[in-house]
Amino acid sequence: MQLTVDLRSDTVTKPTPGMLEAMWSAKVGDDVFGEDETVNALEQKAAAIFGMEAGLFCPSGTMTNQIAIKCFTQPLDELIADQTAHVYRYEGGGIAFNSGVSTRLLNGYRGIITAEMIEPEINAENIHFPHTSLVVLENTVNKGGGSCYTLADIKPIAELCKAKGLKLHLDGARIFNALSHTGDKAADYGQYFKGISVCLSKGLGAPVGSVLLADKEIIKYARRIRKVLGGGMRQAGFLAAAGIYALDHHVERLKVDHSHARILGEELGKLDWVSNVLPVETNIVLFDTVQPAKEVLAKLAAHGIKAGDTDKHRIRFVTHLDVHAEQIEYLVKILRDEF
């Protein structure tokens, strides 16, 4: 029997019955007036989890990241990030468009950069150079195959930023996946970052939304920027309720997604038509194929399996809460028998 297995992204999940019930019963108000108590509760909850003062609920992680960059920079500034960073590659040129800021790109290992790499790229005060003001990290790194920073990796970067007067922002699109893998505590993150973006609509399974975390003054200004960007939602508590439910019920189960990803990574490593599999740490599996990726994807699609290519010979599988054990078993059988 053919099954459908959608591994294109962990953004394709549907709300669970419990999440739908939480959304249906949410108490709502007008969030632009600050009167939606469910949105307020989500913002407070997320801030407390990461040891931050306040939060701002937004429609997307792109918006939370772009608001943070706007808060932490001025036109003619420059930020430092890895060359694979989502804020640079997948946010529509928003760094330049929204903030008038240039980007200094580094070549980290699977997207992970270090203080030693960052320090020589900080510009001296000189009218010929943009002013370096911000460092952006991504955890987990999408283009790195779900690679993770540990707090031990982050600490020296934060210390360098403090010493040099730079802000440090975290694109935490899959931060709970990283925490599940490393065993670090979310509450310890607040001491290192000026801003943290936490996505609720990827591995946690909420239909919409990310929360920007920072201190109260930054969030006050961020709320103004959100309004300008068109992100001021009204009775958004129906969406925020899904985020609260996700934080309460879907964090621990991320280990299941990671286990499924490891099974796929191990199986792919045995196949002669797969030339390379990146180390699998979380829920993203990146692998290289001998034949063009689009040909492999077409064969998979014929068996009800959806995935995406990230390069001419590279394919990405992403496991999530709508991918179950029997679907993984089915996919493994297809990979073994049909290629």
Score class of each variant (00 low, 15 high):
V5W: 02
T11C: 03
V12T: 10
T13P: 07
M19W: 10
A22H: 15
M23P: 11
W24R: 15
G29H: 12
V32P: 08
E35I: 14
D36Y: 06
T38C: 15
Q44V: 04
L56I: 12
L56G: 10
F57Q: 08
F57C: 03
G61F: 05
T64G: 06
N65F: 00
I69M: 00
K70A: 02
T84I: 07
H86G: 01
R89A: 04
E91N: 14
G93C: 05
A96R: 11
A96M: 10
F97Y: 09
S99C: 01
S99L: 00
T103S: 13
T114I: 13
A115V: 13
A115Q: 14
A115G: 10
M117R: 15
M117T: 10
I118E: 07
E121N: 13
A124M: 13
H128K: 13
H128R: 15
P130G: 05
T132D: 11
S133P: 04
L134C: 02
L137Q: 00
N142R: 02
K143P: 06
A152P: 08
P156F: 12
A158K: 01
L166N: 08
K167N: 00
L168S: 06
D171N: 10
G172Q: 02
R174K: 06
F176L: 03
D184G: 00
G195T: 14
C199S: 13
G203H: 05
G203W: 01
L212R: 02
I218Q: 09
I218M: 11
R224T: 06
L229P: 03
G230I: 03
R234G: 13
A236I: 12
L239S: 15
Y245T: 06
A246G: 10
H250K: 13
L254R: 14
V256F: 10
V256K: 14
H258R: 12
L268C: 10
W273C: 08
N276L: 13
L278R: 11
P279H: 13
V290I: 14
V290Q: 08
P292A: 06
K299P: 14
L300C: 06
H303G: 09
I305N: 05
D311H: 05
R314I: 02
V318G: 05
V323C: 07
A325K: 11
E329M: 06
L331A: 02
L335A: 01
R336C: 03
